[in-house]
Structure formats: structure tokens, C-alpha cells
């Protein structure tokens, strides 16, 4: 089902961009963690008091004063949503639509390798990339917290938070990948692959910004990644995360079907 040669090629292409994201995440994580102050409230919470709407929009509004709540608010409301999403947009487009647009898809299809195997391999490249980024963030978060504030981080909850973010990123990756399979031109693949998640994020920002618009949260899938709920230990978060994984499974299945049935203008 998996073509190892193609998988290796995809991963090699991903290395550079994953390293770049890892470097940026390392910077953010270490800086943010050092800003946590368990006794006096952090510099960030002062900032939140100064301009509550703006900080709310990016989800930077800790519902609990623990280190775990702090991490969740300041890293999993914006950075861990946007960076892996940018990775998915770039990677998913490169894996299918760009090959069709440029014509290099010819060489993947003129070999005795089933289309299903090709698309399944490319999905695995994308998921591996997302997985590596989230796994790195998890390890990084634990390491940064343990070195600055030993024993403060609720590690099981933090891991669960990362499982949630992985589910969300899979769904975003699924949207990008399906778009890459549907469109034969890079510009449309990117327009929809980046446009839909970006729009969903903007709706989430609006929903966060105030009471009047809070119903907008039903119009965006970002609501399914409920970091406050995870930190509070709500059982509904299990169902929400399950929905994230199921939806991404459906999106990737739709991608396989689209790719195997479509006409290739190459």
C-alpha cells in the first residue's frame, strides 16, 4: 500500500520546512514558558488586562492559573494552530496538485504503481510531517516546563491537549489534501486549501471576541479543539476530539477516491 521510494522522497522534501518550524516553535515555547510566574501573575496576564479583546481573539485568555492552563492559552490558541496549518498548506499542495500542475505527475503514473498507493503514500507523508511537529512540540513543552518549573506541568493533560491539536491539524491537513486532489492547478489548490482553514480561524477569532458573536463558534471546526475543556477535564472533549479524527478520516478517504477517479490533464 505504501511506496517506500516515494515516501522517502516526500519526507526528504519535508525535512527543511519541519526544521524551520521546529526552530520557531523552540523559540516561542522557551520564551513563553519563562514568562510564567506562579505567584504574581505573568507579564502576559498584565497584557491581557490592558487589551482584553485582542488577547481573547487569539485565545490568549487563561481559564486557569496553572502552568498547564497558561501553556494552553498562550501556545495552543494561536501558535500551535497556525504553524502546523501553514505546514499542511505547503506540504499538501506540493504532494499532489503541484505535480499535476507542472506535469511531473506523469512519472508517478507511468509506473506500475496503483494510484491508490501513490495517494496513500502522499497522505502518509503529510500525516508524518504533522505528527513530527506535534510530537516535537509536546516533548519541547514538557522539557521547557520541567527545566523551569519542575513538577508544575500536568503532563497527562498536556499530552491530551497535544492529541487534540493533532486531531485538529489532521482535519486541516485533510482539507488541504482534498483540495490538492480536486484541483489541477496550484493556485486553486492553495486558494481552497489555505482559504477554508483561514476562514474558519477568522470565524473562531470573531466568536472569541465577544458575547454578541459567540454563536459564530458553531460555524467553525476550531471549536472542536476545546483547550479550556481539556484543561478542565470535561468529558465532552473526548467526543470533540473523536469527531476531529473521524472527520479527517473522511476527508482523506474522499481524497483517495477523488485522486483515483479523476482525469489527469498531464
Amino acid at each position: 500500500m505504501l511506496n517506500i521510494t516515494l515516501y522517502k522522497r516526500g519526507m526528504r522534501e519535508n525535512i527543511k520546512i519541519i526544521l524551520a518550524f521546529a526552530a520557531v516553535l523552540t523559540m516561542y515555547f522557551t520564551i513563553i514558558v519563562t514568562m510564567f510566574d506562579p505567584t504574581f501573575g505573568s507579564a502576559l496576564s498584565e497584557l491581557a488586562k490592558a487589551m482584553p479583546e485582542l488577547m481573547n481573539m487569539f485565545g490568549m485568555n487563561p481559564s486557569s492559573s496553572t502552568l498547564t492552563g497558561f501553556m494552553s492559552a498562550y501556545l495552543y490558541g494561536f501558535i500551535m494552530l497556525i504553524f502546523p496549518m501553514v505546514f499542511s498548506i505547503i506540504c499538501a499542495n506540493r504532494l499532489v496538485a503541484r505535480h499535476v500542475d507542472k506535469g511531473s505527475m506523469v512519472y508517478l503514473l507511468s509506473a506500475p504503481v496503483k494510484r491508490k498507493t501513490i495517494v496513500f503514500t502522499q497522505i502518509n507523508v503529510l500525516i508524518s510531517g504533522i505528527f513530527i511537529i506535534v510530537l516535537y512540540a509536546t516533548a519541547l513543552g514538557i522539557a521547557a516546563c520541567e527545566s523551569s518549573f519542575p513538577g508544575e506541568l500536568d503532563i497527562p493533560k498536556f499530552i491530551f491537549l497535544n492529541i487534540g491539536v493533532f486531531g485538529l491539524q489532521l482535519l486541516i491537513g485533510g482539507i488541504c489534501f482534498l483540495s490538492s486532489c480536486i484541483f489541477n492547478e496550484t493556485k486553486y489548490s492553495i486558494a481552497f486549501g489555505a482559504g477554508i482553514p483561514a476562514l474558519a480561524y477568522v470565524i473562531q477569532m470573531l466568536a472569541n471576541s465577544g458575547e454578541e458573536l459567540s454563536n459564530a463558534k458553531y460555524a467553525t471546526f476550531f471549536t472542536l479543539f476545546n483547550s479550556d475543556g481539556i484543561i478542565a477535564g470535561d468529558t465532552v472533549t473526548y467526543i470533540q476530539i473523536l469527531v476531529l479524527f473521524l472527520t479527517s478520516f473522511i476527508l482523506f478517504t474522499a481524497s483517495v477516491i477523488t485522486f483515483t477517479r479523476k482525469d489527469m490533464p498531464i
Binding site: 522522497r9 506535469g103 511531473s104 506523469v106 512519472y107 503514473l109 507511468s110 506500475p112 504503481v113 494510484r115
Partner: peptide
């Protein structure tokens, strides 16, 4: 896919990786 085992193809417009 089966057909490609024994088929050689030169495309009209060549584009590689």
C-alpha cells in the same frame, strides 16, 4: 497500473522533479 509494467512512455511535455 498493471499495463505500465511493460510499457515505456515518453511524454509530449517533459517535466521532472
Amino acid at each position: 497500473a498493471t499495463i505500465q509494467k511493460d510499457l515505456g512512455y515518453i511524454p509530449g511535455e517533459i517535466s521532472f522533479f
